[in-house]
Design a protein around this nucleic acid. Structure first.
Lengths: 151, 151
DNA sequence: AGTCCAATTTACGAAATTTGCAGAAAAATA
DNA sequence: TATTTTTCTGCAAATTTCGTAAATTGGACT
């Protein structure tokens, strides 16, 4: 995978503002041809630099209980547990971390019942889970996907 | 904002698999006209149900240090601190939570120096911050934006 | 400098998609 | 049942995407 140059970052910068921008539009903004923008976007997609997605507001689609859960696992069980967690649709993020918890996950549920079921029936029965700390989201202040400083 | 019906969820289901699907393609899959799909997508966009974005792989754009930080705040300072944190480009997520930490944030940095600077110079100097727990991401297992069970 | 090579960019036509509407159909309201 | 409102369909025009070939650029090596 080749290194990204300044034009690649500019393209990402425009796309992070609006994922629907056309090759044509970006090309005009950068003063290059449409084909250049297309080639670069396709290369970055192939290299897994980014992907086109939609970001849904969980509350607006009926997922009203959002949580972050820190998990302490028995030595040697982390990978297995992470793989199991991956399979739950409700779990949108799973990572291994240094610090107080070995795994931290983010998950979205329809309601408290579903959360309680997940914690007490699913998590509690996973082999190698020592303890879990559930933090329930009370208010979201920011959830941004614009990591690049642009312009 | 009107409630989403089954067709809206189907449309979201197709888009969450691939944010680049065209109105035309989705219309064929759902056996309705292109205009119907377009109207519904535009309504959902207007209502903030979802947005078209790109999801960049932080490692591939040079943000190699990813962290989750739990923050304990002095009573009454939470909102102010959250608002301040919002302004940092490095901080991609800020939420108020129940549980051990009052605020939990996710942030991406170029390197450890930038992280250390953020924690020791920025966070440490924010009024009302009592303590912070930094968890450094060692491995990411899942980072999905498909919350809807589809089909 | 001059030559060659590989990668990138440009150019352009064809196919596909989006966009703007107008009228039909369906649903909600009275 | 009549009326209003909303949703859906079907076009045509404008725009974008896509495939491809030609032109350009930037080194590496003489």
């Amino acid at each position: 995978m080749s290194k990204l140059d300044e034009m690649d970052f500019s393209i990402l910068g425009f796309l992070q503002e609006n994922g629907k921008r056309s090759y044509t539009e970006i090309a005009k903004l950068l003063n290059v041809s449409e084909g250049t923008v297309r080639t670069r976007i396709n290369r970055m997609l192939k290299d897994g630099v980014f992907e086109f997605i939609i970001h849904m507001d969980p509350n607006k689609i009926g997922l009203n209980v959002q949580v972050i859960i820190g998990i302490v696992t028995k030595l040697g069980h982390q990978e297995q547990i992470a793989t199991t967690l991956n399979q739950y649709q409700e779990v949108r993020f799973v990572g291994a971390f240094s610090g107080r918890h070995d795994l931290i996950i983010q998950a979205y549920f329809k309601n408290n019942d579903d959360l309680v079921h997940f914690v007490n029936k699913e998590l509690a029965n996973m082999d190698g889970v020592i303890s879990v700390d559930v933090s329930i989201e009370l208010k979201q202040y920011k959830d941004s996907f614009s990591y690049i400083e642009n312009q």
